[in-house]
Simulated assay, not measured.
Amino acid sequence: MSYTRDEEQGKDVIMFMEPSEATTPSKDSSSSSSDPKDQSAAFNPETGEINWDCPCLGGMAQPPCGDAFKEAFSCFVYSTAEPKGVDCVEKFKAMQDCFRANPEVYADQLDDEDDEDDEKDDDEKDATETEKKAEEKEEVKNV
Rank of each mutant, 00 (worst) to 15 (best):
M1G: 13
T4I: 08
T4D: 12
R5D: 10
R5F: 14
D6P: 02
E8K: 14
E8H: 11
Q9R: 15
Q9I: 15
Q9T: 14
G10L: 03
G10D: 03
K11A: 14
I14T: 07
M15W: 14
F16V: 12
M17Y: 10
M17H: 07
M17Q: 11
E18R: 14
S20A: 11
S20F: 13
S20C: 07
E21D: 11
E21T: 11
A22N: 10
T24P: 01
P25C: 01
S26K: 02
S26M: 01
K27F: 12
K27T: 15
S29P: 11
S29Q: 12
S31F: 15
S31T: 12
S32V: 14
S32I: 15
S34V: 10
S34M: 10
D35C: 05
D35Y: 00
P36V: 15
K37L: 14
D38S: 02
D38V: 06
S40E: 05
S40Q: 10
A42P: 04
N44Y: 05
P45I: 07
P45Y: 04
E46Y: 12
T47N: 03
T47L: 07
T47R: 07
E49V: 12
W52T: 01
D53E: 12
C54Y: 04
P55L: 04
C56G: 08
C56Y: 11
L57R: 01
L57D: 00
G58F: 05
G59R: 00
G59E: 00
P63H: 09
P64W: 00
C65M: 00
G66S: 02
G66N: 00
A68L: 04
F69C: 01
K70R: 09
K70I: 04
E71N: 14
A72D: 01
F73V: 01
S74Y: 06
Y78H: 11
Y78W: 10
S79M: 05
T80R: 14
A81H: 09
P83F: 06
K84L: 06
K84M: 05
G85D: 05
V86H: 13
V86I: 15
V89C: 07
V89D: 10
E90V: 09
E90C: 08
E90Q: 14
F92H: 07
K93N: 11
A94Q: 03
A94C: 04
Q96L: 11
Q96M: 08
Q96C: 06
Q96F: 08
F99H: 02
A101C: 01
N102K: 02
P103V: 00
E104T: 08
Y106S: 00
A107V: 03
D108Y: 00
L110T: 00
D111E: 13
D111N: 10
D111S: 03
E113K: 06
D114M: 15
E116T: 09
D121E: 15
D121N: 11
D122G: 06
D122A: 14
D122W: 09
E124Q: 05
K125M: 12
D126I: 08
A127E: 08
A127C: 04
T128A: 13
T128R: 13
E129R: 09
E131H: 06
K132E: 06
K132I: 13
K133W: 02
K133E: 09
A134P: 07
E135V: 07
E136V: 04
K137I: 08
E138V: 01
E138I: 01
E139R: 02
V140W: 05
V140T: 10
V140K: 13
V143F: 10
